[in-house]
């Protein structure tokens, strides 16, 4: 009977956590935004979350594009289809790797930092003290970080795909000698703006909401001890990675499956 009780307890805990997370999110984004005071906070967070993640995104994008071109070339050349390398690299980046790898890197780089930061603010009573100063921490702390995450990740994903393409071009055209003209023209013939680029951006937007939400909630809900915060940080990375991969399947099935 024990395991049934455990199952029950776990289920209840899961659902109450989802409930608390929803209340937190609603409290943060429904509250009337104060543009004069809120905008500088938002800009500050775009810097912390977006700009500081730029280096890891650009470097990873470059290498992933290069590896894709190298691997793709060895397969395609057997069929004499190496001219389609551009198509292969661009579609893999725009549809899948751009949004997904960006979201995973984002969870590791910015998500864990967000959790730790908010968890520490909770542990050092900064959140409580905001409340006692009659300042709503959901609006002052959570909302700017949430919006900054949702705003930054699609930009990072676009940059990731672009840099990846350039990396693919570097290896495919400059190094392996695929024809420059056919690399780009076959790519252009097969990539569609709405179908591929826009859908990739929509994916990345959905991932942004989920990863930022999980990161902030894990911090906000952390047990305010050093142990609790380190646990929450791990949970952020694990849960948001799983959520991203699972959602990616669903979104891909919806967008490209039919």
């Amino acid at each position: 009977m024990d395991w049934i009780q455990n199952l029950g307890r776990n289920t209840i805990e899961r659902f109450t956590a989802i409930g608390r997370a929803t209340f937190m999110l609603i409290g943060a984004i429904v509250a009337k935004p104060n543009l004069v005071k809120g905008f500088p906070l938002f800009v500050q967070q775009v810097y912390v979350i977006g700009v500081l993640s730029l280096v890891i995104i650009v470097v990873s994008g470059l290498f992933i594009g290069m590896v894709l071109a190298l691997q793709g070339y060895t397969v395609l050349v057997d069929y004499g289809a190496e001219d389609s390398l551009g198509q292969m690299v661009s579609l893999s980046l725009l549809r899948e790797l751009g949004p997904v790898v960006t979201a995973l890197l984002f969870a590791g780089r910015a998500g864990s930092a967000l959790t730790a930061e908010i968890g520490l603010m909770k542990a050092t009573e900064q959140l409580t003290s905001l409340e006692m100063m009659a300042v709503d921490p959901l609006r002052r702390v959570v909302a700017p970080r949430f919006w900054a995450g949702v705003f930054s990740m699609p930009i990072l994903a676009i940059l990731f795909s672009s840099v990846g393409l350039l990396g693919g071009h570097l290896v495919g055209v400059e190094w392996l000698g695929v024809d420059h003209g056919s690399f780009w023209s076959i790519m252009q013939a097969s990539v569609q703006f709405e179908g591929d680029i826009l859908n990739g951006i929509i994916k990345s937007f959905v991932f942004a909401i989920v990863v930022t939400w999980i990161a902030i909630f894990r911090g906000y809900d952390a047990i305010p001890t050093s142990e609790g915060i380190s646990q929450a940080t791990t949970q952020t990375v694990v849960q948001s990675s799983l959520a991203v991969l699972g959602l990616d399947f669903v979104l891909t099935a919806l967008m490209f499956g039919g």
């Binding site: 800009v43 725009l94 930009i155 676009i158 840099v163």
Partner: peptide, 24 residues
């Protein structure tokens, strides 16, 4: 402020690159 502006401009430039050079 400068770096955030740069970041956003870079994002827009990359989107233009994708829209004009990569898509049909």
């Amino acid at each position: 402020e400068l770096l955030v502006g740069f970041f956003v401009a870079l994002g827009i430039a990359a989107l233009m690159f994708l829209a004009l050079n990569v898509a049909s």
